[in-house]
Design a protein around this nucleic acid. Structure first.
Lengths: 123, 123
DNA sequence: ATGATATAACACCATTTGGTTTTATGTAAA
DNA sequence: TTTACATAAAACCAAATGGTGTTATATCAT
């Protein structure tokens, strides 16, 4: 596996569009570095750096086969993002949004204005 | 930065832990800048920069009330992240993962692939 | 009007990031 | 064995990032 336990935050890892594109490529099938590089206008070295970051976030794993290093998608850590998102889903799924959250967690609380209609008229 | 619509990528916006914490705070209730700042060890100026980035990603909105600027959560753009994630859920839900994906890409999966690729022939 | 408060706008700085090129090493094939 | 291929490692660079402090402006409370 990834020997360098640099522990990159998964949110940080997926922040870069190139890295997201790498993940999408690997979702189809595992690929050696050179094959991945051929999909981008940047140098092979740059792609390797992205792969290292993805590996440090445990989103990909690489194994050597002959002289090639094959990278494979390892989507597990994305569950962290999903969990994070699930907290906010309540805010766009039902309009009661924050009210509901507050009620369930805190009792009555002082509910100061909740995300409602932009009724403000400015000039 | 910038004050105008710089159109910050939502993935980029949520990459920073401080900004995620700001979102969590605003999920409870809308807050003025000073109240937000009091939750962090960093300067008010730094917090404002984070707020600008979040606003450029359309994840928060700010409106002035008297001398205060009140920031409010606007979770809509997070749907983009959710859609992106939904593509990968199939890979951790069933272990057949990529194989299955390739085989039944025309079924009911309704994968909302965000970007199309310059599709290369594979046999 | 005065003073305190809340934000805005700058200028500046250190570190990180995303990229390059160069050099070296291991492996496959001729 | 020699040559070509695939990766690794290192030095370097410009720009973005996350932070600071200072100064200015608008608003609220005396």
């Amino acid at each position: 596996m990834s020997a360098s336990a640099e522990k990159v935050d998964v949110f940080q890892a997926i922040a870069d569009p190139t890295r997201r594109e790498v993940l999408r490529l690997l979702a189809e099938k595992e690929l050696p570095i050179s094959a991945i590089t051929s999909h981008f206008p940047i140098s092979r070295t740059a792609v390797v750096k992205h792969l290292h970051i993805l590996a440090d976030a445990d989103l990909v794993t690489g194994h050597k086969v002959g002289r090639e290093k094959i990278y494979r998608l390892h989507p597990g850590p994305l569950t962290e993002v999903k969990q994070w998102l699930s907290f906010y889903e309540q805010f766009w799924n039902n309009k009661l949004s924050m009210l509901k959250h507050l009620v369930e967690t805190d009792g009555d609380t002082a509910l100061t204005v909740v995300q409602s209609e932009p009724d403000q008229k400015r000039k």
